[in-house]
Amino acid sequence: MGCSGGETGENPAAFAVFLKNVVFKWPGQQRPTLDIPIFSVSPGEHVFISGPSGSGKSTLLGLVAGIFSPASGTVFVNGVCLNELGSAKRDMFRGDCIGFIFQQFNLIPYLSILENVLLPCRFSPLRLERARALSGSAAAEARMLLERLDLSPSLWGRPVNRLSVGQQQRVAAARALVGRPSILIADEPTSSLDADRRKVFLRLLLGECRSTQAALLFVSHDQSLAEDFSVVAHLPELNRAGGEEAS
């Protein structure tokens, strides 16, 4: 599978995320879930991705993260063509460059809050190095992020399952941000929060992404959140395959 930028003259290296002619089909399914002629995210750009359930939003994020490989087409992240990397390299690349926040149950129950935040630094020497360079030590960086996300030190000693869902999501955000990955991927991180908390959480997250200059791919069903984003993408419009719903 080739890794050329494409005939149209775009330079994939100029984007944080760059997908071209990507077709993805789940094993055992007749029709592809995704068929995206082009999709790109500039460095530091905040993209809101919406779409009906089953339209392939999570699948798209999995492609960007290098968890899945497309049947055809090319995926560039930070100018690196994921198609060319072996699976172990892709895992390492993901650990280095991408921070994740999921819908819920983001934390590992048997690790302390601090250990949860430090998790990416355990697997990515690059992020460990960056965290050290920024704050002296990875733990100091983690504490700094936790405080910036409004988690007071009095909470840090608690087992993670004694935190409220909103607090858990903020710990997850701190983990996604630790070691300054250049891309943040958030798959419906606010859907288990009430409307007020959603706004507060999103404001904190966007603020941190801005200050670390990370690109943000944010998936949500809640259109009211879209107004805070510089780019709003509706997946069915990007996707020629049309997803499940269209069939």
């Binding site: 895992d91 999921f102 149950f105 983001n106 590992i108 990416p120 697997f123 990515s124 983990r175």
Partner: peptide, 16 residues
């Protein structure tokens, strides 16, 4: 499963 997916997202390989 959840726990393992979180580890994967943090850069753990399937081998890990």
């Amino acid at each position: 499963r959840r726990e393992l997916a979180i580890l994967r997202s943090a850069g753990a390989r399937p081998l890990d």
